[in-house]
């Protein structure tokens, strides 16, 4: 082989790099997540189905409700539900951090539902954060200026 002095170490480094998660986490065990389930009531579908398919169901739900105007979901056993993540799902699962987040953190997924939908436990929104990156470029974290409530004229004429 030509250049074997470079190729072989290269292959070794590559293999070590791609297997990084395996040997880095070897021997460590992480406790299985324990999401807090509502004490009473039933979910729209069986626990097993929801565990494996809630993401597909939510995706179909949002399309049906927003795009087709189909707000009512009739489950496989004939029960009817108002389609709404924020107002229906979270009525029973009334704590996002104890329910959604527990599994999502374990599975290292970050669904962006909550960028718009408001979790039940949120009462007020936080002020914008200043980060080092924004400071580097001199970007003020908060927008300034006159409020829209004051007048109905235009900023500039």
């Amino acid at each position: 082989m030509y250049n074997s002095d470079k190729v072989i170490p290269g292959i070794i480094i590559f293999v070590l790099f791609v297997t990084f998660p395996i040997w880095w986490n070897h021997g460590k065990s992480v406790a299985a997540p324990e999401p807090e389930l509502p004490k009473k009531g039933r979910c729209v579908e069986s626990k097993e189905y929801m565990r494996s398919h809630h993401m597909q169901l939510l995706n179909v739900w949002r399309n049906e409700a927003i795009r087709q105007g189909m707000r009512i979901y009739t489950s496989s056993d004939g029960a009817r539900f108002w389609i709404s993540l924020q107002n229906e799902c979270m009525k029973c699962h009334n704590n996002k951090s104890k329910f959604c987040d527990r599994c999502h953190q374990f599975a290292a997924v970050e669904p962006y539902c909550w960028n718009c939908h408001i979790p039940p436990e949120t009462k007020k929104f936080k002020a914008p954060k200043a980060s080092r990156l924004l400071k580097l470029f001199g970007v003020p974290p908060v927008l300034h200026g006159s409020s829209q409530a004051e007048s109905y004229g235009h900023a500039e004429h």
């Binding site: 980060s131 990156l133 924004l134 580097l136 470029f137 970007v139 974290p141 927008l143």
Partner: peptide, 14 residues
């Protein structure tokens, strides 16, 4: 690229 990361963080308001 750094400026773009700042934009991703802040939004197009940058």
């Amino acid at each position: 690229f750094l400026a773009f990361l700042a934009q991703l963080q802040y939004g197009l308001g940058i």
